[in-house]
C-alpha cells in the first residue's frame, strides 16, 4: 500500500497526457450541454448575474460609507477581481469535484475506478459545466474596471498575473482537498463551501476589517490571503496595511505549491480510505 501514499511524481509527460484527457472529456460535456443552446446561455447569464448582484452590493455599501477598512471602492474592486478571477477559474476547471458525494452514493465512483484514467481527472471533468464562464466573465469585468485606476508598472503587471495563476492553484487545492472529506462522509458536501466560496468571499474585502486572529488563520491555516491580499497590497502600493511583511506578496507561488501538495495528499488518503471500506 506504500505506493498509494507516495507523493505524486510530477512527470511532465504524464501531467500533459492527463491534461489532454481532461480537456477531451470536458469537451464532450460542453458539446452535449451546448445542444440545448437557449438553456446553456440562460445558465451562463444566471452565473454572471448572481455574481454581478454580489458586486452591486459592494457598490451599494460605498453609497453609505467613504471607505471600508481604509480602502476605497476602486481598491476593493481590485481585491474583488483578483480573488474573483482565480475562484472562477478554479470553479470552472474543478468545480465538479464538489459532487464527489453523489458519485459515491450512486456508484458512479466505482465505475470511474475501473477506467484507465486517474480518478481526479475523471471526477473534475465529470459534468464539466461551461456555464460557469458567466462567473469568470463577471470577475474579469470587475478586474478590468478596477485595473483602469491602478498605477501599472511592468513589475505590477507580472505580479498580478503570477498572483492570478497562484490564486487559481490555491483555490484548486482547496476545492479538491475539502471535497475529499466526502470520501469519509458522503453527505457533508456543504462543509467545503465554507472554505471555497467562503474563502473567496472573505478575500473580496480588505482583510483589515477582520480581527488579527482571523487574518492569521487566512495566512497560515487556509492561506487564501495569498490569493490576492498580499500581492494586491504590493500592486496597490500599500504594503504596510496588512501588518505583515510586504514580501509575503511574492510568496503566493510557494504557498500554492504547498496547498496543492497537501490537497493531493488528502485526496490520496481519501481514495485509500474509500478503497478499504468500499462505501
Amino acid at each position: 500500500m506504500a505506493d498509494v501514499l507516495a507523493p505524486a511524481r510530477p512527470r511532465p509527460a504524464a501531467v500533459l497526457r492527463h491534461a489532454r484527457t481532461y480537456l477531451r472529456l470536458a469537451a464532450a460535456w460542453v458539446r452535449s450541454s451546448y445542444s440545448y443552446r437557449l438553456s446553456f446561455w440562460l445558465m451562463v447569464l444566471s452565473s454572471f448575474a448572481v455574481n454581478a448582484i454580489e458586486f452591486l452590493a459592494v457598490v451599494f455599501i460605498f453609497a453609505n460609507v467613504p471607505d471600508l477598512g481604509g480602502f476605497s471602492l476602486r481598491e476593493v474592486a481590485f481585491l474583488y477581481g483578483t480573488t474573483g478571477v482565480p475562484m472562477a477559474l478554479a470553479n470552472l476547471l474543478v468545480g465538479s469535484v464538489e459532487d464527489l458525494g453523489r458519485s459515491i452514493r450512486t456508484g458512479t465512483l466505482d465505475q470511474m475506478l475501473v477506467r484507465p484514467v486517474p480518478l481526479l481527472v475523471q471526477v473534475c471533468s465529470d459534468r464539466f459545466a461551461l456555464r460557469r464562464v458567466g462567473r469568470l466573465g463577471q470577475a474579469v469585468a470587475v478586474l478590468v474596471w478596477a485595473g483602469l485606476f491602478v498605477d501599472w508598472s511592468p513589475a505590477a503587471v507580472l505580479l498580478t498575473l503570477v498572483a492570478l495563476l497562484a490564486g487559481t492553484a490555491i483555490f484548486f487545492g482547496i476545492f479538491v482537498g475539502f471535497a475529499a472529506i466526502q470520501f469519509w462522509t458522503a453527505d457533508a458536501a456543504e462543509v467545503a463551501n465554507a472554505f471555497t466560496y467562503g474563502g473567496s468571499s472573505l478575500t473580496q474585502y480588505p482583510l483589515t476589517i477582520y480581527p488579527r486572529e482571523l487574518v492569521a488563520g487566512l495566512t497560515f491555516l487556509v492561506p487564501v490571503a495569498f490569493v490576492n491580499w498580499y500581492p494586491a497590497l504590493l500592486v496597490l502600493d500599500r504594503p504596510e496595511a496588512s501588518g505583515y511583511p510586504g514580501w509575503l506578496g511574492l510568496a503566493s507561488p510557494v504557498v500554492a505549491a504547498l496547498v496543492l501538495a497537501l490537497a493531493g495528499l488528502v485526496w490520496r488518503l481519501g481514495v485509500r480510505h474509500y478503497r478499504s471500506t468500499g462505501s
Binding site: I61, L68, T185, A186, D187, A188, A189, E190, V191, N193, A194, G198, S201, L202, Y205, I209, Y210, P211, L214
Partner: peptide, 22 residues
C-alpha cells in the same frame, strides 16, 4: 440527512462570521 444538516450549519455559520465583519 444528518451529516448534510450539520455541514450546512457549519457553512451558514462561516458565512455569518464573514458578513458580520463586513
Amino acid at each position: 440527512y444528518r451529516a448534510a444538516t450539520l455541514s450546512g450549519i457549519f457553512t451558514n455559520s462561516v458565512f455569518g462570521v464573514i458578513n458580520a465583519f463586513v
